[in-house]
Structures are given as C-alpha cells and as structure tokens.
Amino acid sequence: MTIEIPLEYEGSTSLGFYIRLYNNYWYTYEEANDFCVQQGTRLAVVDTTDKINIIIALPGFDITYYYLVAATDNVKEGSFVWSTGSPVSRDAQLWHDYQPNNAGGNQNCLTLKQSKASLHDTDHVRFVSIVIFPGHVESEFLEWIWDGDVDFSKKNFSSLTLTTTALSEVNCLVICTQWVTNVAATFNSDTSTCSCYAELNGLPSNPGDRLWKTIPSGYDGSMSLGFYARLYHYYWYNYDEANDFCVQQGTRLAVLDTTEKIKIIVIALPGYSSTHHYLVAATDNVQEDSFVWSTGSPVSRDAQLWHDYQPNNDGGNQNCLTLTQSKFDDVTCTDDFKFICELI
C-alpha cells in the first residue's frame, strides 16, 4: 500500500508521526480540534519526547508561541489525558515550572511552548495537527474478534474508511489493520468486498457481510464470553469521573456479573493488584443495600462474591462497588479509586 503524506507535513517514518504547525491560525481548543478533523487529521498527541523533538525542529516553530495539543483535564481537574485515552506524563522535565497551576480556575487545555507543556484556557492560540494515514497502527497489538454474520436489517455502520476487494477474509483484516482509525471490518465472500469502518452506526451494511471488530491495545478477555476489559491502574477517579472516562473512550465501566468475568480481571489482565480497589459499574442509589449493575440486572448476593460483612454501608454513604482481592466491597462514590473499563 502506498502512503502519501501531504506536502505540508513533516515528521518521522519510523515513528509514524507527521505533523504540521498552524502558525497563521488562532483557534480555541474546540475550533482547532474541529479544524483538524475536517482536514482528516487530528490535534497532535505529543506523548513522547521524540515527538516533541520533531515538533521543535520544524521550520516555523517559534519558541515564543503557545501551540495547542490534544490533551485536557475535563474529566478530572489536574489529571490531563491525551485524546487517545493515555495519561499525560507528569515528569517535571516535560512541564514548565509551577505547571499545571490552573490559573484563574479554568485552564483545562494543554499547549506546547519552548518544548515543554503549559496550561492554557479557551483563548485563541496556534495549534499542531497530526496527519492520520494508512500504514500506521498506533496500538501495540491489534486483535480481531468475529462478531457474527451481519443481519443488515439490524446492524448499521458508518465512517467508511475504505472499500476494496480482497481474496479472503484474512486479506481483508490485514488491509483494515493498516488504518489507524479502524474499529471494524466486514467481508462479503459472495462479492469479495472488504470494508473498513471507523464507527459502528449510520450506514446500512450489505446482506452477506461478516463483521469483525478490533480489540484496542490494553484490553484483554475472552472471545467466548465476548468480554474484553482494561485496568486503568494509573488513574484515580471517583465513580462519576470513571464512568465518564469510560464513556469518552467508547466503552463503559465493567459489568462483572459472572464469576468468569471476575477471573479474567484477576488472572488475565496485566497490572491487576490484589491490594487495590477497582471501581465497577454497580450502585445501590435506587434502593439501599440492593446493588444493581448499569445494565439493570441485580448484583448477586452470593457470599463467595463478597468480602466478609460486606456490603456494610460504612458511614452511611457507601453506594458504589469495587473489586478488591477478587471480591466485592461497597465504597463511597465520591472517593477516588482505580477502575475497569469494558468494551461494548
């Protein structure tokens, strides 16, 4: 496959990182983000020092300017997250002195200035765009799961990235793997039509399509259960913040309604620690002591699933649920914990 990089973009083939400075544009974060999307690009995710070095070496980079990049702390104040979902490093060498400081109480966006990160509010500033192109797969490992034969009266797809012919289903998945925005693929053995998709709603599919979906980097689980989850063990969020974060990633807080799912979390997921609490998607907000999953089903009261004397509603306000040492414990919803997101 031929990769064509727009003339205005420069960068590194080995990193798969090509960017452009917009020195003559002054946009807010939302305006800059929308502009990049309209160009088929995105605001730059500058999550390594190598990428920062590429930017400051570009002709036109001005050390006196602020350049917007793709990170905010909108979910939780002071916890900046890249648009890809990974946390912004708090390494002091990457930040200007006394940053982030949230001056004025409304600095929720990130800029690059003089090769270091600095906070900025919603004023108009310059920005950096990163080109998204075929051939660059950002995830460390891209796995596919077969979702089934598509019933075209029930399933819809949109954001068509590519339609082409392929000799086989395997060839189709190989082709779609090369597209950074790809989340699903369909292959029709009758017509040998392969389609790659960036989203899963809006455009009718064709009878005979078979649907495959990607598993993002960091997720692990079981194909037979259709359950794939990820621990966010570098984040500490309360229930609402964790729930919002998962939704922004196109996922949800994990629903651990079977012992098999709990075993996957405890045994299969990298980074799981029995010493920590992990928020999951259940509360007893509707009726005290009756915990319900976000799907509407009740949380089992099987004693083997709960720690001794739990739930105990300690302090009278423990309305959320965590998994710790492979068992459930009720906790205060406004306290911060690590959490688990689940693919949906």
Rank of each mutant, 00 (worst) to 15 (best):
D149R: 09
D149M: 07
D149A: 12
V150P: 01
V150L: 10
V150G: 00
F152H: 09
F152D: 10
S153Q: 15
K154H: 13
K155I: 15
F157V: 12
F157C: 13
L160G: 07
L160I: 15
L162V: 08
T164H: 04
T164M: 10
S168T: 09
S168R: 01
E169S: 09
E169L: 05
E169H: 03
V170A: 07
N171F: 14
V174W: 06
I175R: 05
I175D: 01
C176M: 01
C176H: 00
Q178W: 07
Q178T: 14
Q178V: 09
W179L: 13
V180Q: 11
N182G: 05
V183P: 00
V183M: 05
A184V: 04
A184G: 14
A185T: 15
A185Y: 03
A185F: 05
A185V: 10
A185Q: 06
A185D: 04
T186N: 03
S189H: 10
D190E: 13
D190P: 02
T191R: 02
T193S: 07
T193N: 09
T193V: 15
C194G: 03
C196A: 09
Y197P: 05
Y197S: 02
A198K: 11
L200V: 13
L203C: 11
L203T: 14
P204S: 12
P204E: 11
P204W: 05
N206L: 06
N206Y: 05
N206T: 12
N206A: 07
P207N: 12
P207I: 05
G208E: 06
D209Q: 00
R210V: 10
R210L: 02
W212D: 01
T214F: 02
T214R: 13
I215M: 04
I215Y: 07
I215N: 03
G218Y: 10
Y219N: 06
Y219W: 10
D220R: 13
D220W: 10
G221E: 14
G221L: 08
S222R: 10
L225Q: 13
G226E: 10
G226T: 11
Y228P: 03
